[in-house]
Amino acid sequence: MLTVSDLHVDYAGVVALRGVDLRVEPGELVALVGANGAGKSTLLAAVSGLHRPVRGTVTFLDEEVGRLPAYRIARRGAVLVPEGRRLFGHQTVLQNLLLGGYHRTSAEREADLSRVYELFPILAERSGQRAGTLSGGEQQMVALGRALMSRPKLLMLDEPSLGISPKFTRMIFEVLAEIRRAGTTILLVEQNLRAALELADRAYVLQTGEVVMSGPADELASSDEVRRSYLGL
């Protein structure tokens, strides 16, 4: 579904990614892990069109998308839930959700809205509230719901558990599992390595802009190096 090959990205004059190769197959949940500054967010930004790569290719559904603007990649079905949620803070929860699906028909939108409200009942209660006034966990739900409103084929999440209570994190991860069971492919950047590896099929470990390890998530979780460097065991 998604193939990234030999991707080089500069970020503010600094080399952020050097020669990254990555594949995501349909229906998979792939985790992208690594320390702060390893290039995880940059990789998602490059795949979703928010950063232009210096070199290399990004192929999504057999089509080169590396040089397309972000909105066209999103409309092709590769949708990013950005780090820090980035809601439209002055608008209500309902308006935020609808903005995710405006390029679709109103019947599709209403069906998807019901689905999002089933996944996150609390958003139905809060539909008239301004998104900027919600708690961090609720905001993350809106951000995820907004992305789901466009029926993504590939859902990319950047640190969905950042700054969120364990209760909400658990809820978000349960929903991710549910979405994945329903057939959506997921590429997840997550600092909570243990949770990410439990959920994922495969994982890539990034370090200073390069992939240093990759493989099935359970193998990585039990590898000595990962346990030592990232899990502190």
Partner: peptide, 18 residues
């Protein structure tokens, strides 16, 4: 709705397909 979204967060607007 699109221009209000752009005012609130341009990056997020692009990320949802605007």
């Amino acid at each position: 709705n699109y221009v209000r979204a752009i005012r609130d967060d341009q990056v997020a607007a692009a990320a949802v397909g605007i």
